[in-house]
Amino acid sequence: MGRKLREGKAAGVAPKLAVLARRLLKREREDNLEDNLEDNPEDTLEPVDLVPMAEFICSCRRLRDDVFGADFFGDPAWDILLDLYIGQSESRTMPGRMVSWNTTQRWVNVLEAEGLVHHAPGSDRLDRDIRLTEKGSTLMHDYLRRAARIV
């Protein structure tokens, strides 16, 4: 993917993040939330509300690769988790945007051992039907919700 295409895609995420920021600010005012980054059980953001934040993080990671080189940094497990989180909103079940399939297979085993991902029922170990577990979805949602409050 060319640099201009990536930058264009990253620019397309900015309006979505602005909408997300406005929603968060409105909810903070409505709920009289304390001005900190602590957990808030009252938070009602749905995963689909946080997809723009995950897309923004992915775009920033691709930009970092463009500037510093793709081989300079490596977080394949994080890339897989982000990709699966975004994929949930698109009814896509396998990572594939940022990490090669061979790398994905190695890291899926690690993520599965941690209880963060699983193969869909009826699929075999080589099948690409990989999904976040409830634990994985909850942790990603919590991370992205907190990250959105920082932005």
Rank of each mutant, 00 (worst) to 15 (best):
T103I: 14
G74I: 01
R97A: 14
V67T: 14
Q88K: 13
G115E: 03
I86S: 01
Y85S: 00
G69A: 03
M98H: 13
F73Y: 14
W101L: 11
N109H: 11
L81A: 06
A113T: 07
N102K: 13
T104W: 02
E114Y: 12
E112I: 04
R97Q: 14
T93Y: 13
N102H: 10
G96R: 10
D79M: 07
S100Y: 02
Y85E: 00
E112R: 15
T103H: 07
S89P: 01
W101S: 11
G115C: 05
V67G: 07
F73A: 12
F72L: 15
P76L: 06
N109D: 14
M98P: 05
D79A: 06
N102C: 02
F73Q: 09
P76E: 05
T104H: 03
R92Y: 05
V67I: 15
T103W: 06
E90A: 11
V110E: 07
W107A: 01
L82P: 00
R92K: 11
S89I: 02
D83C: 03
G96C: 10
L111Y: 04
W107Y: 15
V67L: 15
R92D: 09
Y85D: 00
I80E: 08
V67M: 12
V117S: 00
V108I: 14
A113P: 01
G115H: 05
M94R: 12
Q105Y: 03
V110G: 02
D79W: 03
D75F: 09
M94Q: 11
W101Q: 12
P76V: 06
R106A: 07
E114K: 15
R92V: 13
D71M: 08
I86L: 03
L81Q: 07
T103N: 13
W101K: 12
P95C: 06
S89V: 02
V67A: 12
F72W: 11
P76D: 04
A77P: 01
Q105K: 14
I86W: 03
E90I: 02
P76H: 04
S91H: 14
E114C: 10
V67F: 14
I80F: 08
D83S: 04
D75S: 09
L111D: 02
G69N: 03
T103Q: 13
L82I: 00
V108K: 05
W78Q: 09
A77F: 01
N102G: 10
A77V: 01
G96M: 10
R106Y: 02
F73E: 12
D79P: 01
Y85L: 00
R92G: 06
M98Y: 12
Y85T: 00
V67R: 14
T104V: 15
T104K: 06
G74R: 10
A77N: 07
I80Q: 08
V108A: 09
G115P: 05
L84F: 02
F72A: 13
D83F: 01
E114D: 14
Y85R: 00
V67W: 11
L84K: 07
T93D: 12
Q88I: 06
A77D: 11
D75Q: 09
E114T: 04
A70D: 08
G96S: 11
F68Q: 12
R92W: 06
R106K: 11
V117Y: 00
D79E: 10
V67S: 09
D71P: 02
M94F: 10
E90V: 05
G74S: 15
N109G: 15
A113F: 03
L111T: 07
L82T: 01
G74H: 10
A70I: 09
V99L: 00
D83A: 05
L81K: 04
R97P: 05
